[in-house]
């Protein structure tokens, strides 16, 4: 019914293992273009692994990831994929300013050796404005709060000017103000026709923030529009819980 072009990302029979210990089993996933998709599942379900495998940071044992133009090679697509890693994954005492970090988002377009140009610096200013951090451009990154760090990473991803964004727990440890800012940013990206995949841990907010959801626990339990697949039975299957905890959510 739907044609291939309508999918931003297609994951086919993807199996990923760390040291021969399987983390993801036979993942089949089709992410339609222009959707805000949440990836939810319990701790250790392989959410981060799925994102890293889609980004080509991990080599799968079987299967492949395909992007809209049919290619699965991240190196070809570096300008079309944006990445927001978990903010805890870097050393925030690194000697860099907010602007330095955001500028790194332009490095992919520049390729090896070439230096950032004036227009790249212009772009970083714009993206900082979008996340409400324009006054912090020359601030050392260690002086930022958790929410501000997360916004800097978002600005960096925006500077990539990508088609598909992968975000690993962008709401983790952020204040209410930042959470609102991120949500409105996500909606804006959606309006521009971008596809956004977000690892998310707060089940309560899934129906408000997202229109597409994938429930995983080592394998895909369900994937589809939030109002169709985000119900108690699927959540039970994902979290293996009695459901009492979740009843309040759905």
């Amino acid at each position: 019914m739907e044609k291939q072009q309508n999918y931003a990302v297609e994951v086919e029979d993807l199996t990923v293992a760390y040291d021969a210990r399987p983390v993801l089993w036979d993942i089949d996933l089709k992410i339609p273009k222009g959707k805000l998709m949440a990836v939810v599942g319990p701790n250790g379900a392989g959410k981060t692994t799925l994102i890293k495998a889609m980004l080509g940071l991990l080599k799968p044992v079987t299967g492949a990831v395909r992007f809209a133009d049919g290619s699965g090679d991240v190196r070809v697509l570096k300008n079309r994929i944006g990445y927001v890693p978990q903010s805890g994954s870097v050393d925030w005492d690194f000697p860099a300013t907010v602007q330095d970090v955001v500028l790194m988002g332009c490095y992919g377009k520049l390729g090896w050796i070439r230096r950032p140009r004036k227009m790249d610096i212009e772009l970083t200013k714009q993206t900082l404005q979008k996340v409400g951090m324009q006054n912090y451009a020359s601030r050392q990154i260690s002086q930022l709060s958790g929410g501000q760090q997360q916004r800097v990473f978002l600005a960096r991803a925006l500077a990539q000017e990508a088609e598909v964004y992968f975000m690993d727990e962008p709401f983790k440890g952020v204040d209410a103000q930042t959470e609102r800012a991120i949500v409105s940013l996500l909606k804006e990206l959606k309006e521009q026709g971008k596809t956004v995949v977000v690892v998310h841990h707060d089940l309560q907010t899934v129906p408000d923030y997202f229109d597409w959801v994938t429930l995983i626990n080592l394998r895909v339990v369900a994937s589809g529009p939030v109002d169709e697949v985000f119900h108690e039975e699927n959540l039970k299957k994902t979290y293996h819980s009695s459901g009492a905890l979740l009843r309040s959510v759905v």
Binding site: G56, L57, R75, K78, P85, S89, Y107, L110, R115
Partner: peptide, 22 residues
């Protein structure tokens, strides 16, 4: 000097560098 940009990026955030194709 030649690989300044790359070394900076790689030292700060290895995964991100890799996702950009370096």
């Amino acid at each position: 000097l030649l690989f300044w940009k790359e070394f900076k990026l790689f030292t700060f955030d290895t995964d991100f560098a890799q996702s950009l194709g370096f």
